[in-house]
Design a protein around this nucleic acid. Structure first.
Lengths: 114, 114
DNA sequence: TGTCATAGTTACCAAAAGGTAGGAATAGTG
DNA sequence: CACTATTCCTACCTTTTGGTAACTATGACA
């Protein structure tokens, strides 16, 4: 492995961004966290994120599960029931995300001038 | 404008992500902020971000300037000298970014298991 | 037998992001 | 005149991302 690649892997900023810097990840984490009991089903999430396609939602959830930020619980019923919740690691990320969102709300007008 | 689009535009999470959720923006903000006097020249940034192409760096800086997060000062010299620094808005974002980075450092091992 | 509901997956296509290589501008220096 | 240094921009190509529509599985229920 090259030095450059090693430096890349060691950089926490890139790690952070590569894990949930995409179009939907932060929104999923936020939405699950804001729910009543911290648990949400697939279609329930879909209704809260109306402009996210089914494909992107399941893809995003799969990534978050692999990053150990979201827990996926499957109940062997028919029709199937799958519940998503934040892991402890996922919960520990929420303060940082909420700080980012708070900043976004406060400085919206300074940044967006299109 | 549809209701869905209005909801989209009003969502601070998306605004935040769309402004600096790309591959390089957060790293640029972080790098400028960590510098000696808070000011960096183009090639200086390049050396700190070795695997970012020239094209992407200038593109990223342009976006950050348009979002009023970075200030660009051009000195009419030859060869040209251009200095980049954070605006007040940009500085106000740093605590949230540093919180995210701190989280990334702390939870690196829980999340990255490839 | 046909339909419903849930939670997906897959194939296919379009759009966006990002990398490489080369050019442009220009004053100073040898 | 040739060469250098600095900060880009542009054309071209590849890779990644994201959307649409159709398909799967299965037990209950009419």
């Amino acid at each position: 492995m090259t030095d450059i690649k090693a430096a890349y892997l060691a950089c926490p900023i890139r790690q952070v961004i590569s894990r949930f810097g995409d179009k939907w990840s932060l929104l999923v984490l936020y939405t699950i966290n804001e729910s009543e009991n911290g648990v949400m089903r697939f279609n329930e999430l879909r209704h809260h994120m109306m402009d996210c396609s089914q494909k992107m939602l399941s893809q995003t959830l799969k990534n978050l599960e692999q990053s150990h930020l979201v827990h996926r619980e499957v109940y062997p019923e028919v029709p199937p029931r799958v519940e998503y919740s934040l892991t402890d690691t996922g919960k520990s990320l929420m303060p940082a995300i909420m700080a980012l969102i708070a900043w976004g709300k406060e400085h919206f007008n300074e940044v967006v001038t299109d």
